[in-house]
Write a protein that binds this DNA or RNA. Structure first.
Lengths: 217, 217
DNA sequence: TCATTTGTTTACAGTTCTGTAAACTGATGC
DNA sequence: GCATCAGTTTACAGAACTGTAAACAAATGA
């Protein structure tokens, strides 16, 4: 058997993590087999144990890296939306959602969390809420922080849902699976997020709700 | 070892499915071990093979039963909302969301789908969209079917997300894990769903969007 | 009461996977 | 060049799990 040249520890870890990420996307976190990862990375499986200690260690490291990358990308997209002109704001928000949907990071982050991996979820989410609130402050007057919290929660939950069973639900609802259809839904959602003022997001049922009811009839 | 009295096939299947459902909620579908299910159901594991053919057969049967039950409960809740008075409509919608969130069916349905189990998703979703559209027709004039589709999709994705990592995300966002906090979010979401007219759900960016922008500033 | 059917159990075979042990080898510094 | 360090591999141990085979026993009907 052809002996491999010695990688640096970083290179080896990166190669393993890359292979593991692809593998997780394919088979899910529970189906992750270190022998399969090793094969995909072109090495023998004990090498993974050597670098990450155990299968759990590998999953933990992947979760860590993935959470950081995903948060970085989403935060960058929101920051970009912050400096967008008013006309481009919906487009920028659509890009935020696209960023969250696209790539493997979202899928991997959710699946790893699903399988119990610990991440820096708290810090990551707070950062996104903070940026989102700045965006809402730019668009509307007197925005409420708790509403930002709820909106971020709604979108985040929807993103998680999209990752887990988005394709099946969209197909069941008659949405096409093509990129254009999915993009259309994201644009629709972006519009709602950008345009909803706090008036429409009131939490106390009584007054505001009645106002809206009257308005809508 | 004390020999068990013979159950009817239906009783045995039900007992196994009940145990499997509890087990799936605890450990997830990938962690489902037929030996553990058998132990929880008070029998030896080959008995499960005898009744369901294989582990896959058990999961398929559970997915089938769960999908039917969940759809039944949600459809009933929407039907109830259909005949609610205008004042009670938000409360009824909140109950719809509660119904979807509560109990084990939602969790099990999502987890089983997550692990690749086939269900009658298409028929179930269409039924829910149909009822939802009737509800929107009662509340607003000239409602668009595609918007109902999108709203149902958004809520469904959010429900899936809630099931998969709702607790962690809520905790990360500073929401309490108590029932009252979760109920509060659901009420907030119900209000949005009930009160959003098609004007606010416009899909073509240009005209309607500008109107809203002006209105909000 | 006896025979048949089928729910149920025990014992086991076969597979798969993680993690260990020891040896091997390429790289680095003296 | 030689020694040391660490990345890498082969071989293996041990555990866990699914599914099979055969026997057992409870219900049912004649």
């Amino acid at each position: 058997m052809a002996k491999k040249t010695h990688n640096s520890p970083e290179a080896a870890r990166d190669a393993i993590l890359d292979a593991a990420q692809k593998m997780v996307v394919e088979v899910g976190p529970a189906g992750l087999r270190i022998s399969a990862v090793a094969k995909a990375a072109g090495m023998a499986h004990p090498n993974i144990i050597h670098h990450f200690g155990s299968r759990e260690g590998l999953i933990h490291a992947l979760a860590e890296r993935t959470g950081e990358r995903a948060t970085e990308r989403i935060a960058a997209a929101i920051t970009e939306a912050l400096s967008a002109s008013d006309e481009d704001c919906v487009a920028a928000m659509t890009r935020v959602l696209d960023t969250a949907y696209q790539g493997e990071e979202g899928i991997v982050a959710v699946w790893l969390h699903f399988s119990g991996a610990e991440t820096e979820l708290h810090a990551n989410m707070r950062r996104i809420v903070e940026l989102s609130h700045q965006l809402r402050e730019r668009l509307h007057a007197d925005v409420d922080y708790s509403n930002t919290n709820r909106l971020v929660m709604l979108v985040t939950l929807a993103l998680v849902g999209e990752v887990v069973s988005g394709a099946a639900i969209k197909e069941a609802l008659g949405f096409g699976n093509g990129d254009s259809e999915r993009a259309h839904f994201r644009q629709w959602l972006a519009e709602i997020l950008i345009n909803l003022s706090d008036a429409e997001l009131a939490t106390s049922l009584t007054e505001v709700n009645l106002q809206l009811r009257v308005k809508n009839q």
